[in-house]
Nucleic acid binder design. Structure first.
Lengths: 266, 266
DNA sequence: AAGTGGTCTAGACCACTAT
DNA sequence: TAGTGGTCTAGACCACTTT
């Protein structure tokens, strides 16, 4: 009666606990997720219809709907109108690498030091002009910086800034080029969005020397173009770091995720 | 009356069109998103309260709620109970790189060819045994493959497979090690989840030779450990490719996104 | 025709924050 | 205390797929 499938399903929770902290829709979602984790529903299987879930969990249709939506937005199930809700096949292609590890580097006030190696005006060459959408020969700002983590050189950053007379250099320094702010998201309300590119590279002699490495050495390049609220490029630059500094990590497929820390469940 | 802010707001849509294709909650979300894009609400600003939105859009509270939820799940706004909904500050750390570009490589039946260089049993050494959670000396399967895209070597893959007697080698070949299936998500219902690691590397002589490169050369390594439904490791391996093969790309911040293609809007 | 997911309503109550 | 977001109900109607 209280069970979802036939009689032999081993459930952890049959009924939702309305007094408990987690909202009901999250409890329903977790219950379904647990059953998928346990293998009660395999990839490709169809879940009970929402009407069934409404009956077995004794909650309203909207609440079941939300639970299913949550699972769908987490990539655990897919829904097909008129036919049902199915456990998603495991796809490697859906995996995503996040930059949050990097963020922590900058939030650690303790051990991060930014050393400005060079900052000067320079006329934009063809390439810079194209990236910053200015005219070749127009004056831009060139900055080279070294990021030290606990005394050790970790990132080498070079970048060009548009020399906007309406945006004084001092402010530009503080806002546009404030790396900490950029990563943590406080400050820099100048920036509306940005494009990022990540690839591996063979470090140049200069880069290797600054990062205390011997050539040949491989590294990661994180290139960025930042745009202001008029969609005009403001900055073009790139971080270079040794391989071991940037090892991205992620998971894919059906994994146990800690609820209460996720998306809209709070 | 029909406007959201005061009198001078330049809106694209004041009223939702209930007859139109996109659901109402998506229209409301898009309307708000457009205003944010246009700079009517800047990062840190507070949006009108949900009660206000209910009144101005003339829709039910639940519908407004859903619209706000959608924006929140897309990282455009954050909500604070008791205080309001705010436009999110732009954070680089929230950026995510997806592997979907890779997927397309494999979906292109046209130009991809998988060449098995070697496949043999081998006793697990200390390292392999640890990764695959088997005993050192136990028999594993070692496979080396080369992926050719339009005749050109693009990925070099090496991996170890657990030699499970209950899972014949033939089947293992077809399912666990089927790279196409792995990326596209069809087949391989053996795999429950996996861990992925991405880093740059200096290619070895062997790797460079197989990929038609001259040393020194930099490349990317995509390491993977796959688990079955008993959470036991099934496979450990890594792809190596030249730098130019894997250039990850993404965007962050407030960007115009094509609705109707997103998350739960369909 | 029956069953499925998808949207939407018009309220209710709650927990929290600001004043 | 008034206003805010957050949850939940018990239905309704719709579009779609399957039988």
């Amino acid at each position: 009666m209280s069970e979802l499938k036939g009689g032999r399903a081993a459930e952890r929770k049959s009924y939702v606990d309305r007094a408990a902290g987690p909202p009901v829709y999250a409890q329903v979602a977790e219950c379904l997720h647990q059953q998928i984790l346990a293998g009660a529903y395999r990839p490709g299987d169809r879940l009970p219809s929402e009407a069934m879930l409404v009956a077995s969990f004794k909650v309203s249709p909207m609440t079941v709907r939300r639970a299913v939506n949550l699972l769908a937005s987490q990539g655990i199930v897919t829904t097909a109108r008129g036919s049902g809700t199915f456990v998603k096949e495991v796809e490697l292609g859906t995996a995503a690498f996040y930059l949050q590890d990097l963020t922590q580097l900058f939030s650690h006030e303790a051990g991060t030091l930014i050393k400005v190696l060079e900052a000067r005006f320079c006329p934009a060459d063809e390439r810079v002009a194209r990236k910053l959408a200015i005219r070749p020969g127009e004056r831009a700002i060139y900055i080279r910086r070294l990021l030290l983590v606990r005394g050790e050189p970790a990132f080498y950053h070079r970048g060009y800034l548009v020399n906007d007379p309406h945006r004084p250099v001092i402010e530009a320094e503080l806002e546009v080029t404030d790396l900490k702010g950029l990563f943590q998201g406080s400050g820099s309300s100048l920036i509306k969005h940005g494009d990022l590119y990540l690839e591996s590279t063979l470090l140049s002699e200069d880069e290797a020397r600054l990062l205390n490495l011997t050539t040949p050495a491989a590294g990661m390049v994180l290139e960025h173009i930042l745009y202001d609220f008029k969609n005009a490029p403001v900055s073009w630059g790139w971080f270079v770091c040794p391989s071991r500094r940037l090892r991205l990590q992620t998971r894919f497929g059906i994994e146990k995720s800690e609820w209460m820390r996720d998306e809209r469940v709070r």
